[in-house]
Simulated assay, not measured.
Amino acid sequence: MLPIELLLPTLLLGVLLDRWLGEPRRWHWLVGFGRLAGWLESRLNRGGGRLIGVLTLLLAVLPLPVLLLWLHLQWAGQPWLQALLAAGCLYLALGGRSLVEHAEAVAVPLHRGDLAAARKRVGWIVSRETASMDERQVSIATVESVLENGNDALFAALFWCLIGGAPAVILFRLVNTLDAMWGYKTERYHRFGWAAARLDDLLGWLPARLTALSYALAGDTRTALRCWRDQAAACASPNGGPVMCAGAGALNAQLGGTVIYHGKAVEKPPMGSGRWADGAAIDGAIRLLRRSLVLWLVAVALFSLPWLSGGTL
């Protein structure tokens, strides 16, 4: 949707804004959207089926991307305005700096032996119970969060900005947020949240595999590809499986094991290879995320070069 020669500047500006500013401390737009979505769900989810869920999703998600599409079309003859709009929306959709800060907030107390503080901090980024976690479980939860959210909060946003500019990246982030709110297989959400979960899977399918590939290229490539091939199918998430298996293999770390969700023990399949994840693996996951981001930007730059030099692809 954007001119090819503006793709790299758009991504760089969005990434730099995320790096410099981080997520808003107050008045975060996704928090506001979450409140709206919660209000709609509380009034429309009266034991209805999938159709009500589909209609509620459309009501919550469509207005902002449609407005952004209208703006983009209004600026059809002004590509730099389109690019600035896309970069601003990309910044709003990214959570790379926040993700790294939350991971470091777990790693630092782990390195100094303060397990209680590490448990508290990991509880801010995962939905599993953390009060009785040991050091290994805290490390595994943090590494899994970095790898999986690296896809949702960074690379998938970059992908949809490349594909469709401002409307596409905001549409993806809104659907991803609704999946996090409604995509549970509980009595309340199993049917109502079906559309949000399926649409998030669809929008995330290709970005997740590109993320898994970038993790593999940025780490132990052979082990990452083997773990992706052999282990991903056993994971519950069709997109999270490739991302976490490839990422764990790239780190030569093992993830999975017993996890407590809402008082119930769940046995997650093995992901990765080698030693169990520890505090050092958290540091490694952050470095893997950063190296993968460099790979994405270099790939976009190489794709853009013939256009920048006045040639053709």
Results as ranks from 00 to 15, higher is better:
residue 191 R to L: 14
residue 286 I to F: 11
residue 110 L to A: 11
residue 198 R to P: 01
residue 244 M to P: 01
residue 238 P to E: 00
residue 231 Q to P: 09
residue 59 L to K: 08
residue 297 L to Y: 13
residue 133 M to V: 04
residue 233 A to F: 06
residue 281 A to K: 01
residue 41 E to Y: 13
residue 179 D to E: 06
residue 25 R to L: 12
residue 113 G to M: 14
residue 123 G to Q: 09
residue 121 R to M: 10
residue 249 G to W: 01
residue 166 A to T: 08
residue 248 A to C: 11
residue 192 F to N: 05
residue 107 A to I: 06
residue 72 H to I: 12
residue 248 A to G: 06
residue 133 M to E: 11
residue 167 P to G: 08
residue 33 F to D: 06
residue 291 R to Q: 13
residue 45 N to W: 08
residue 263 G to F: 05
residue 119 R to N: 10
residue 181 M to T: 07
residue 193 G to V: 03
residue 99 L to N: 06
residue 142 T to E: 00
residue 233 A to P: 09
residue 291 R to N: 12
residue 28 H to P: 10
residue 77 G to F: 11
residue 95 G to L: 03
residue 47 G to L: 12
residue 110 L to M: 15
residue 238 P to K: 02
residue 128 R to L: 06
residue 224 A to F: 03
residue 203 L to P: 00
residue 268 K to V: 06
residue 159 F to W: 06
residue 11 L to S: 12
residue 279 G to R: 03
residue 36 L to K: 01
residue 79 P to V: 11
residue 29 W to V: 15
residue 225 L to T: 11
residue 138 V to G: 04
residue 121 R to Y: 04
residue 19 R to T: 15
residue 33 F to I: 11
residue 189 Y to F: 14
residue 242 P to L: 05
residue 69 L to P: 03
residue 191 R to Q: 14
residue 229 R to E: 12
residue 37 A to M: 08
residue 110 L to E: 07
residue 73 L to G: 07
residue 221 T to R: 15
residue 228 W to Q: 11
residue 69 L to N: 06
residue 234 A to P: 13
residue 25 R to C: 08
residue 210 L to C: 10
residue 151 N to V: 12
residue 144 E to V: 05
residue 295 L to A: 11
residue 312 T to A: 09
residue 152 D to E: 10
residue 143 V to F: 04
residue 83 A to F: 00
residue 138 V to F: 02
residue 116 A to R: 14
residue 100 V to R: 12
residue 61 V to Q: 01
residue 187 E to G: 14
residue 30 L to R: 10
residue 112 R to H: 14
residue 310 G to L: 13
residue 149 N to A: 08
residue 299 A to N: 10
residue 128 R to Y: 01
residue 47 G to F: 13
residue 210 L to I: 08
residue 199 L to R: 01
residue 194 W to M: 00
residue 132 S to E: 14
residue 230 D to C: 13
residue 31 V to E: 15
residue 151 N to Y: 04
residue 271 M to E: 10
residue 237 S to V: 02
residue 267 E to K: 09
residue 4 I to P: 12
residue 236 A to Y: 03
residue 292 S to M: 03
residue 176 N to T: 02
residue 182 W to M: 11
residue 111 H to V: 04
residue 217 L to G: 10
residue 263 G to T: 09
residue 188 R to N: 02
residue 84 L to T: 08
residue 153 A to W: 07
residue 166 A to L: 08
residue 222 R to S: 13
residue 223 T to K: 05
residue 31 V to I: 15
residue 2 L to Q: 02
residue 280 A to I: 05
residue 29 W to N: 09
residue 64 L to V: 10
residue 255 L to T: 01
residue 231 Q to N: 07
residue 80 W to A: 13
residue 5 E to R: 15
residue 1 M to D: 05
residue 254 Q to P: 00
residue 64 L to S: 04
residue 25 R to Y: 06
residue 304 S to V: 09
residue 95 G to D: 07
residue 167 P to Q: 09
residue 143 V to M: 05
residue 137 Q to W: 07
residue 55 L to P: 01
residue 49 G to V: 14
residue 302 L to R: 10
residue 308 L to Q: 13
residue 193 G to N: 06
residue 295 L to I: 14
residue 217 L to R: 12
residue 151 N to L: 11
residue 250 A to F: 04
residue 85 L to H: 01
residue 180 A to E: 03
residue 71 L to R: 03
residue 58 L to Y: 07
residue 83 A to G: 07
residue 100 V to W: 07
residue 146 V to M: 05
residue 218 A to R: 15
residue 37 A to T: 12
